[in-house]
Write a protein that binds this DNA or RNA. Structure first.
Lengths: 159, 159
DNA sequence: TGAAAATTTGCAACATTATAACATTCGCCC
DNA sequence: GGGCGAATGTTATAATGTTGCAAATTTTCA
């Protein structure tokens, strides 16, 4: 890619990706799940972008590798990564992003900047608690929670 | 439709739909917006189901009316209804549902039952507050918030 | 080891959801 | 009733996601 993703907050991105991959390997090993080359490559591609990446973006990136994959290849890899909590799906964008809390069960909040397109994952336990309470008040049993906030990140707010 | 939507909570549904339509007419009148026959019919179709309805479901329902519409007709009506807060889009389902708080600015929480497919809209101010705080803590300016909880409603929980 | 079983991948076709572009009609105002 | 902007019709196409089956790979276990 010629255009680099500007991270929401500055950091050493290559190291951050490597750390994520190492974490993913550990999670898979612990659960006897097979992080095959394709799956790992998809995870790496997603992590390299702080912007949520569409399935067809991943497909295109794989094509640049010379890996001539079809959509099911990507969707299957994504399903695997979702299943083991290594990536999240951002429903409002039809896109995927690396999970910063892989291995831990958690309810995340995503802050998605409409200008720079970066997305930040927050643990936000107070939100999770409020959601849990609201559901309980309706005798509803939550299984999966989607919380996505679109707006302006601090770097873009002056726009 | 032969299969009626079972409401999440029992009520007089025909009256509930009529009330929603009356409210929508009021909102549009107040804002000088044109609730044309197509738009009103789409809103009615969506309200008649407590289950979120896909755009192509609406299209099919219109076809049963004898209204031979194409996708843009439905999407344009939906855009209008979204713009005036008369319906919500459920991102995790690619579907639409009538707004129970039309006219008021609000952050809603949706409880979506995976068994019966009904969806309940909650105002849940505590969730809205927690989200606002979490965003503020990151200096993030929220513009639109998506909160969708998939799980089991009380009627289906014993499944 | 080596053959059966299970998992993963390749591949082609297809289904679903959403939009673009342009022509036509409708409602309204003067 | 002519002109103008909003709304709708129409065709085509883009973007996203899935099904089904065959081939290859890995695992299991005798």
């Amino acid at each position: 890619m010629s255009s680099k993703a500007l991270p929401y907050r500055p950091h050493n991105h290559a190291a951050c990706v490597q750390q994520a991959l190492a974490g993913a390997r550990a999670v898979c090993k612990a659960q006897n799940a097979r992080l095959t080359p394709t799956r790992e490559r998809v995870l790496e591609l997603i992590w390299q972008s702080h912007k949520p990446l569409g399935a067809y973006d991943v497909l295109a990136a794989l094509a640049e590798d010379g890996h001539n994959a079809a959509p099911p290849t990507v969707y299957r890899a994504l399903d695997f990564l979702l299943q083991y909590g290594l990536v999240h799906r951002i429903a409002s964008l039809n896109a995927f992003i690396g999970c910063t809390h892989a291995g831990e069960h958690h309810t995340s909040v995503f802050l998605i900047c409409r200008s720079c397109r970066n997305a930040l994952e927050l643990a936000a336990p107070s939100v999770a608690d409020a959601v849990r309470e609201a559901a309980a008040a309706q005798a509803f049993t939550p299984e999966e929670t989607t919380i996505e906030i679109a707006g302006q990140c601090p770097n873009c707010r002056h726009d």
